[in-house]
């Protein structure tokens, strides 16, 4: 019984706390910049307001434009069922995919939103779609390599197994392969979520925005779903980053409800740490010029590559 409950709890945690995470980040950035900033509950207010409104859809838009928010949201919900968020043992649905499969589901969401952006033939949408696809084409090889670094350390690409391996031995934790993978993955978290130095999440100049310009055409309920999905993405990637790479300890046991609740608290605490790192980067770096982004992602790729070749000599657990 309890695994099923935990499974539901895990997805609910993602759904419910993702807006909060985004709100806290926005507030923290504002405070560091000596502004007052919006309330940390602002995302919930936004969602409530948008969900109540009707939406205006261009008459040139096809069905893709309509279904894209739903596909994106359900993709992230799917991912939330398979990765370790609150428990250290696989939950019933975790057999669906490993980390690489999870990455495919994530990119499905990105793909459908890019398609929707093109669908309305709005110039800014096309611009955003092309930029995100370009960034994605650079980020995804690096992402796959990062998964290989964890796989090289733990001899598995199952996130739970990786979590166990790294949590189990401090020696494994300080392996160059693992640390390089950690850095590379953090850079990718920033890139995938359109944070500084890739993109400015609070930017409002259409010509320079990347992520946001894809969804300018959305309004009302659909826009709410899209926003929610993107907050979930940030939450999910941060949680994977913390649970698999940085602090693999403190997850709850999968057999008791209490374990699940403890895991929930743990993951929220870890997100505070991750959020602090993101806020520091957000406030101390400038956004990169567009063509420097390739170098940023290239560096991430390089870290992961060196990590993998190092594992070839130093070895993971097997050696």
């Amino acid at each position: 019984m309890s695994p099923v409950v935990l499974q539901i709890l895990q997805s609910t945690v993602v759904l419910v706390f993702a807006p909060l995470y985004a709100g806290v980040l926005a507030r923290a950035v504002a405070i560091v910049q000596s502004k007052h900033g919006p309330s940390i509950l602002q995302p919930y207010h936004d969602l409530a307001k948008l969900l109540r409104k009707g939406s205006a859809i261009s008459e040139n838009a096809s069905w893709i434009f309509r279904i894209a928010p739903f596909v994106a949201l359900s993709s992230y919900l799917t991912v939330s069922t398979i990765v370790p968020i609150i428990t250290d043992e696989p939950l019933p649905l975790a057999f669906l995919a490993d980390l690489i499969g999870g990455a495919f589901v994530l990119s499905l969401a990105g793909f459908i939103i890019a398609l929707a952006a093109l669908d309305t033939a709005s110039p800014l949408g096309g611009l955003g779609a092309s930029r995100t696809t370009w960034i994605g084409s650079l980020a995804e090889p690096a992402l796959i390599l990062v998964f290989f670094t964890v796989a090289a350390v733990s001899r598995s690409d199952n996130p739970y197994f990786e979590n166990h391996t790294i949590a189990g031995s401090i020696t494994t934790y300080v392996l160059p392969t693992h640390l390089l993978g950690l850095v590379a993955f953090f850079m990718l978290v920033l890139a995938e979520n359109g944070r500084i130095p890739i993109d400015n999440p609070s930017g409002s100049i259409e010509i320079s925005m990347i992520e946001e310009s894809r969804v300018l055409e959305y309004s009302g309920r659909e826009y709410a779903l899209i926003k929610w999905a993107s907050w979930m993405k940030l939450f999910l990637l941060s949680a994977i980053f913390m649970n698999v790479f940085v602090i693999p300890w403190g997850l709850g046991h999968a057999d008791t409800i209490l374990g699940g609740l403890q895991g929930t608290l743990a993951v929220l605490a870890k997100l505070v740490i991750c959020g602090t790192a993101i806020v520091i980067i957000d406030t101390s770096f400038a956004k990169l010029r567009l063509f420097r982004i390739a170098e940023f992602l290239g560096a991430s790729f390089l870290f992961a590559l060196i990590g993998i070749v190092t594992s070839y000599v130093v070895g993971g657990v097997g050696k």
Partner: peptide, 24 residues
Amino acid sequence: ISTSLIIGAVLTAFAYFAINPSTL
């Protein structure tokens, strides 16, 4: 810069595979 970094990555990989760990 990007090209030389890529060449560098290839050289790094080459350096690793030139050294067979079992012979160390």
